[in-house]
Design a protein around this nucleic acid. Structure first.
Length: 720
DNA sequence: GAGCACTGC
């Protein structure tokens, strides 16, 4: 049901004029408290504090549609705190899809409350917990709350959970919504009868009485207040959320965006890159001051456009040449990413060439013009083959609106869509939720660990296809995470669910403890879990190749990655003595640069390494090193990744044994030229060909020996 | 001999 609060209204679209106010910027950190009070009061949401609090008090679940700049994310938790929702030490949790958002918003709110970060207001994200026993308003990533649920299935410390940016429909958000719905139901039943019925436990299916009974035991004597849920979204249509939560009430809060005029092309453009460049120069020569943001599909396209712009600038009369192109995409080293924030010389105009990193993750100030060709490179997943691929597809309407909104943050703006207006109507309303287009093994494992046995019957907002659920169940069964009747196995399944890793990597750690090479596998799995470790700029390809040779192992990429990690260890060991933390980091960055290693990826891998090492220590796994015995390490790789084995074919391509797919070793692999008879690999991605990455040479006879459950009947291998 | 958007535990 729609529930209108008189003073709340929603702007129908980005073209509607809204009033200007003191703009809030999350990082302008040194305002005096009095000014903060004024700023808080001037936010659109401030006029409806009382009504909102009442809404939350009177409804179990509330959907809030608030546009950018409404202040919902920073203010609502404070209103609820003031209204007593944190009595008895209960916590208000707010989830975000992205880490930066959780951190910056928490900092801002701590400042507004005039408390030290980590006291009443804090945040918690992976590798960085800024909360304490006295934290009552807690910002976190949605993935982290899911992990918390594994330890505390009733989420008992929370009185309110706010799921922010729900319209983005990340896989974590979708799983979380299903989980929260269930937890809420059980907590309100608990409230009524004082006990949870054994056969309808919080997260378990009907047939799982034993598990709920054990939850009950855990929770004996603990009093649960009902759980309030608030779903916040910038979506065009909140009805879907409302229906999912049993016709929950929803309210609109006006945002603070400036009007953005939308322009379309007359006809469809055959060359959108060229059309975008023409538009850039039209804006530059005919429009008033303000920077331009252009959405492109990838690094290659960005580099090409950058070159073309420079070429055309040179053709302009000297007085019109004041245009600077700045690229930004995720794999760009961070110091180069920072250039989008740097001011350009007086009188110059900046044109930012971005992937969809600039859609939500990075907010660049000064943008008045947006050019949107209406395309995005998206990862898709073939449920039948399990092959991922990257394809350029049209954006959704929501995405197009989000992009145009980037022009209206500081003043009225203009957005040029490089397609005709009737094409906009044909776009999908919103992007297909992630849960419908990726491998579900991890989700299924997590849900099983939460006591959800019937995955197909789980109340997802949008159900993933049966076939991809089935495929994941089969994979987990083959990995030994599930028993024959598809229950979580003990201890393997539980251990795998505890590890914050892809299930296959979690299993590899368990296997490695039996092969006495867990030290090596911890490094391997950490390195495999991050974006590409090697940095290969196009202009220094040969140099980067020579640098990589320094680490490479003839046995394959896994041992090569170990060599990189250990070299970084040795380097750190050398410089660590007497150096400050900052200096160590700076030196490491320099070492990475010299060796053509992506320092962000390496640092990430080192963080993951220490986290999963702690986990396996707690589990009591045997942490040993195989030393120089790389034969047994490779045997361990075969035993762990047996599902990803491939045999060479006469033409030099490979056949993946699991599904018969024809694949090729990626040219970046150290085994690209060696082409051994039998290999295991970690990733299969389709671009121009089916490429497998992270490849190691194995003996084909190891497969039936080490994975008899899978290879016993595959006679052709043992015959090779 | 390729060429890869973005998140997250």
């Amino acid at each position: 049901m729609k529930d209108d609060i008189a003073t709340l209204s929603m702007a129908s679209n980005v073209e509607t004029m809204k009033r200007k106010g003191n703009s809030i910027s999350i990082d302008d950190g040194r305002k005096k408290p009095r000014i903060i009070v004024q700023q808080r009061k001037s936010l659109p949401i401030a006029t409806v504090e009382k009504e909102l609090v009442e809404k939350v008090q009177n409804n179990q679940t509330l959907i809030i549609v608030g546009e950018t700049g409404s202040g919902k994310t920073t203010q609502l938790p404070q209103y609820l705190f003031d209204a007593g929702f944190c009595r008895d030490g209960k916590v208000i949790g707010i989830t975000q899809p992205r880490r930066v958002a959780a951190v910056t918003i928490a900092k801002r709110v701590a400042e507004e409350c005039d408390v030290q970060l980590g006291q009443r207001v804090g945040y918690s994200i992976r590798f960085d917990d800024m909360t304490s026993g006295s934290t009552r308003i807690k910002y976190m990533t949605d993935g982290l709350l899911l992990r918390e649920a594994l330890l505390d299935p009733f989420l008992s410390k929370y009185s309110v959970i706010i799921v922010d940016e729900a319209h983005e429909r990340t896989i974590h958000t979708d799983v979380l919504l299903g989980l929260l719905k269930k937890v809420q139901k059980v907590r309100s039943e608990y409230q009524k009868v004082g006990t949870v019925k054994t056969n309808d436990g919080p997260l378990s299916g009907k047939e799982n009485g034993a598990q709920s009974a054990s939850f009950l035991k855990l929770c004996q004597g603990v009093k649960f207040p009902p759980l309030k849920l608030i779903i916040m979204s910038a979506s065009l249509d909140p009805r879907m959320f409302s229906e999912y939560f049993g016709d929950a009430s929803y309210v609109y809060i006006r945002g603070r965006q400036f009007p953005v005029n939308i322009y379309y092309t007359q006809h469809a453009e055959s060359d959108y890159v060229d059309a975008a460049i023409i538009t850039i120069f039209q804006i530059h020569l005919e429009e008033g001051p303000g920077d331009i943001l252009v959405f492109l599909t990838g690094q290659e396209e960005i580099e090409a456009v950058e070159g073309l712009i420079q070429e055309r600038i040179r053709q302009l009369p000297a007085g019109n040449q004041k245009l600077v192109a700045v690229p930004i995409y995720s794999s760009l080293p961070s110091d180069q990413q920072m250039k989008v924030f740097m001011p350009v010389p007086d009188g110059f105009r900046k044109v930012i060439l971005a992937t969809n990193i600039a859609e939500t993750s990075v907010t660049i100030p000064g943008i008045m013009y947006v050019i949107d060709p209406g395309l995005v490179k998206a990862r898709t997943y073939n449920q039948q083959t399990g092959v991922e691929s990257l394809v350029v597809v049209p954006t959704s309407k929501t995405q197009a609106v989000q992009r145009s909104g980037r022009a209206g943050r500081e003043g009225p703006g203009k957005c040029f869509r490089i397609y005709p207006e009737n094409e906009f109507a044909k776009l999908a309303d919103s992007t297909v939720p992630e849960i419908k287009r990726c491998n579900l093994s991890n989700v299924v494992l997590q849900l099983k660990a939460l006591g959800v046995d019937d995955i197909v019957g789980f109340d997802f907002m949008e159900k993933p296809s049966r076939i991809s659920i089935k495929k994941s169940l089969e994979e987990l069964l083959l990995l030994g995470a599930l028993t024959d009747d598809y229950k979580l196995s003990d201890p393997i399944g539980h251990q795998m669910a505890t590890l914050p890793l892809d299930p296959m990597y979690g299993k590899a750690l368990i296997v490695a403890s039996q092969f006495n090479c867990l030290e090596e596998m911890l490094i391997t799995v950490a390195m495999l879990s991050v974006e590409s470790i090697f940095y290969r700029p196009r202009e220094k390809l040969e140099e980067s190749r020579i640098a990589m040779k320094h680490f490479s192992s003839p046995e394959g990429d896994h041992i090569t990655l170990i060599n990189v990690y250990r070299s970084s260890d040795e380097f750190l060991e050398k410089i660590r003595i007497g150096s400050s933390k900052n200096k160590i980091l700076k030196n490491l960055r320099k070492w990475c640069e010299e060796n053509f290693i992506n320092s962000r990826s390496l640092r990430h891998a080192r963080d993951i390494h220490s986290q999963i090492r702690r986990h396996v220590e707690q589990m009591g796994l045997c942490i040993a090193s195989c030393g120089d015995d790389m034969l047994s390490f490779r045997r361990c790789l075969a035993a762990s990744f047996f599902l990803n084995a491939a045999l060479r074919q006469p033409e030099g391509t490979y056949r993946a044994l699991a599904n018969g797919q024809v694949v090729q070793i990626h040219p970046f692999s150290v085994l690209f030229q060696a082409k051994p008879v039998c290999i295991i690999f970690n990733e299969l991605v389709r671009t121009n060909n089916n490429y497998i990455r992270n490849v190691t040479r194995i003996d084909p006879l190891w497969l039936p020996e080490l994975a008899p459950q899978y290879y016993a009947n595959k006679v052709e291998i043992s015959g090779t």
